[in-house]
Design a protein around this nucleic acid. Structure first.
Lengths: 296, 296
DNA sequence: TAATCGCTATGCGTATCTGCATGGATTGGC
DNA sequence: GCCAATCCATGCAGATACGCATAGCGATTA
């Protein structure tokens, strides 16, 4: 086999890839944890090594040349393969020392994972835990996390999932608000108190409508992308929000609205990538979460 | 996008790939033009970086661990992508300075290309020419060559081919041999003179049989993997060989055997990879060869 | 059994690369 | 129109990696 064709500096290819994807040397340097001069020199060296002008230096900005656009396609394939390498590698690692990344919604991260991880750390002190609180779904294939807690059953075949149960949710408002404005007896009265939702609350409105609540966009008095901020809004008496019963019932200054209504149910899934599941640290955490995760 | 997963040292992945494929650090170092200690340290560093033992040091030899076997699959994908990067890069290079690699059979390389390239060099002095004389088919996709001259029409869709014509071939023997043993009047007499063929002459025997010559393995008195060596064998009077008419007819001390027989015809194709064809140097050489390549 | 060959591991001097600090240039906002 | 922010290019000191030389180990051979 002839290896001359792959004899160029692969790290320079990586520098080019990230620079092209991020749009600037500085951004790429931040993403890779390197400095901008280093990346700039690597990209320049790659251009010289391959004899191809990849970027057009127009003033202060870099723009891909046509050749660069062509090249980035292939380098991207290299990056995909590299991600698979890293994925498999982390799956092969059987060490109990190392880090572990778990992602969950903000609320679960703060109110459940934070406490659960205390017990896990006590059992496995060598494992450094990173919790990515994100309401959007993180890509386990790119190893943006090792373990995810999600509310939908994953469909990709290379993900391993275990259903932890159904979490119940309900409407909650501050006691002070209810004392002042009265406790609603039906959906219409609740909506009149003002709702608190997500920034893109079309999804939430649709969900409420599906459950029979005639919510409209105008019923929402405040929005936030953060569930925790929503929680503090509710506690401040700003309106009515939707929260998991298990956590919200424990708050003394907050009270369930329409307590006789059927609680919402949403499934809770524990998800890991198949490759990564073979990692000993991940397996331990996966089993620990499956055993101790509180569902209510 | 999260780039942490591709943040490992890609050059170390390359070192691992070549080491695994070549079977030893020393062989990999030779293939990559590096030294064995460097590659050894890179592989060790990769193992530490990924937290995976890739090789088992059993005495003096390296053996892939199960984890390493799993890993090499993914790293190989990286290598494939890297080869595409190099391929595209060389296609994007429009410089008239640089090298150019042409492959052809030994005979074509020596008797045709060598002379043709004199004229090409005169026109384009900046282009350094490398001729890979190889009777086996070189992989243009891996860029083992930029241009190939072959005797079959390529089937892969990403190759660009132009038929230069049909080259004729015939049986040749040394005048001295024919003077001494007499000039054959039919195939049987020719075979009795002794044939000269390739090391794996099963293919050649089959070809002769297809053309109606009752050749057998025992008719061959000498074999060589090199067509040029065969030529010198024929000139030395060792036996009868098959050669292109255009070149063999020009040799004063060699004479055609069974001159009235139909000459063999085999097509001559000029082939380049589509990506590489856009390279200016390749395009120039491709067109030059298409124009000047002698067919007889 | 001694010898040779091929492979890997390690020390050391040097060359290369990286990061830091800085300068120049452009864009966007007030 | 000026100021601030952002980005890329460059000089310089230190860290890193490389190649060379060598030693150790195992297998094959005479």
């Amino acid at each position: 086999m002839d290896w001359r064709s792959v004899g160029f500096d692969w790290n320079r290819a990586r520098a080019f890839l990230v620079t092209a994807e991020e749009g600037s040397l500085s951004a790429a340097a931040r993403a890779l944890g390197m400095t901008q001069p280093t990346l700039g020199r690597q990209v320049s060296a790659l251009e010289e090594e391959l004899g191809v002008a990849l970027f057009e230096r127009e003033g202060t900005r870099l723009a891909l040349t046509p050749a660069g656009r062509e090249m980035v396609e292939h380098v991207r394939a290299m990056g995909e393969a590299a991600a698979n390498v890293a994925l498999t590698a982390s799956g092969q690692s059987q060490s109990l020392e190392g880090n572990l990344c778990i992602t969950a919604s903000e609320f679960f991260s703060a109110r459940i994972l934070a406490e659960l991880m205390v017990g896990f750390r006590a059992r496995h002190p060598g494992i450094q835990i990173e919790i990515v609180a994100a309401n959007d779904v993180r890509d386990l294939r790119r190893r943006e996390a090792d373990i995810a807690i999600r509310n939908t059953q994953p469909t990709q075949p290379d993900l391993i999932a275990r259903k932890l149960g159904d979490s119940t949710g309900g409407f909650y408002a501050a006691k002070s608000l209810l004392d002042r404005r009265g406790r609603p007896r039906d959906a219409a009265e609740m909506l009149a108190l003002g709702m608190i939702g997500f920034c893109d609350n079309a999804q939430m409105v649709a969900g409420l409508n599906r459950m029979g609540y005639p919510a409209q966009d105008g019923d929402f008095v405040a929005l936030s992308n953060s569930h925790l901020v929503q929680w503090d809004m509710v506690r401040a008496g700003l309106g009515v929000g939707v929260f998991p019963c298990l956590q919200a019932d424990a708050a003394p200054d907050v009270e369930r609205v329409l307590p006789e209504a059927d609680p919402m149910r949403f499934p809770v899934w524990l998800v890991a990538h198949r490759e990564v599941k073979s990692n000993r640290r991940v397996r331990l955490a996966f089993d620990y979460l499956a055993e101790h995760f509180p569902i209510g």
